[in-house]
Amino acid sequence: MGGSPVADRVLEPGADESDPSAGPDSSPEHPLMVLTGVSKIYGVGEIAVHALREVDFKLELGDYLAIIGSSGSGKSTLMNIIGCLDQPTHGSYWLDGIDVGSLDDYELSYIRNRQIGLIFQSFNLIPRTTVARNVELPLIYARLPKAERRERARAAIEAVGLGNRGSHVPSELSGGQQQRAAIARAIVTEPAIILADEPTGNLDTASTRDVLEIFFRLNAAGRTIVMITHEPDVAAHAKRVIQVADGQIVADMRQAPVAGPPPAPESVSPEHLQVAHT
């Protein structure tokens, strides 16, 4: 794998360390992500759907971004592109100084494995496979030795508060526990970026608070977070909020500086929590 520039880059000591803010591209002149004129069109001719229209967008290392917008506005489409799961129809996407459009399948796998941690609304744990094994999986694909894998998986499971659930299979867990297991899997390779598509969409308020607390700690530790949400209360925890409508970014609000800590999780309105519990 030494032949791949991306692999070498990602493998560099420091790039994979737990303090990504020390990385070389943290200055505003070299943002973590740069999207230029990104469009995504599904289908052709009459039935063509313009899910994204000429989106220009930058994101800095260490930021905590919430993407809001009505259903069908193109949020997930944007997320899939920045998560390297899908490619834009037009436009370019640069991640950490690399043109993602120029990467081959192998290099994209590497980015997905080491740079990005993905969290989904529907958890997407592998069924009939224990939490420990699910969390270990990205490390298996990263070809880490077994002992190190075990240790890091255990630490990640511990970090999301599932210390005693490692040997359970997903069907034996609550939704909140499954989402925490999924977060453990997303952070186990210590990626610089956490991408979450409606991570709290299927959760109750208590589990939502757990997830937001984990995100708070991750961002405070320097990880960049991008989160799609429908809930304004959830978006309130981000440092920056963008609103997407009809495939375009229609609003971009900064709630807290990139450099500082994110808005504290305690700011989840207590009244709201009370209402939800009754």
Partner: peptide
């Protein structure tokens, strides 16, 4: 298929 998608999303290569 979905499981394959998950594996790829967390970094499985084609060869894997």
């Amino acid at each position: 298929t979905r499981e394959i998608g998950i594996r790829k999303a967390i970094g499985a290569r084609k060869a894997d």
